[in-house]
Design a protein around this nucleic acid. Sequence first.
DNA 1: GGATGATCATAT
DNA 2: ATATGATCATCC
Length: 225
Amino acid sequence: MTTEQSPRSESELVARATALAGESVGEIAARFDRKTPRTLNKAKGWIGELIELALGATAHSKPVPDFEDLGIELKTIPLNSRLTPQESTFVSTVPMTGLVGLNWENCTVKAKLNRVLWVPVEAGKDIPVAKRRIGMPMIWSPSATDAEILRADWEEHIERIALGDIDQIDARFGTYLQVRPKAPNRRELTLTTDTSGTLVSSLPRGFYLRASFTRKILADKYSGC
DNA sequence: GGATGATCATAT
DNA sequence: ATATGATCATCC
C-alpha cells in the first residue's frame, strides 16, 4: 500500500483518523514504505506529511484546506507528557500584498479554521520519533465567541500590515492568533504594499494559533467527556 | 515551563 | 518566489 484515496465525507475521514489512534508513527510509516527520521531536526513537518498521506489529503502546497472538497483542515498537534499541546500551530502565510478587498469572510485563515481535524501526536525529544503514538482525533469548529476573537485578531494584524507597520508586529499581539516569522532565515525578504502604495520590504510572516488557545480547545473537548 | 523569534524540508 | 508541513533554539 503506497497511496490512499481521499475520504468522501467527514465521517469517513474521522473514521480513518480514529483507526490511526494508538498506532505509532513508525508503524504508519512502514505501511507507506517511508523511513522514519531519527529526529525531526531537519524534518520538522515530517509527521504532518505522513498523516496527510495516511488520510488521503489532497491540497498539498495550496492555500486551501487539506481536504478541499470537504472544507476540512488537518492539523497534527504535538502533545507533551502531560498530554497538552506543547507548540503553537501554524495556520497560513500572512498576505503582504493584495489586501484590497481582503476581509475575514474571504480570508485563508477563516477558511482553514472553519473546520479542523486535530490529530494529537506524542512529542518530546525523549521519545524516539518512530515510537511516538497517535492519539484520538477531534473534529472541531470554533465557537461563536472564539470565532469573533479570531476575527478581531486577524483584522488587527491585517490593519497594521495595510498601514505599512508590519515590522511593528511581534508575537505578543493577538489573543489567539499571533504573527511570527515564517521564513528560511531572517535575511529573507518579501514586499508589502501599504495603503498609500508605498513598498515596504520585510521578513515573511505566518499566522499561528497560540499554544494557550489549542490547550483550551482540547480542554473544552475533554472536559465534556 | 512557556513564549518568542528563527529555522528546516519539500512542492509547485 | 511562495505555498505547504511544522519544530527548533533560546530567552524569560
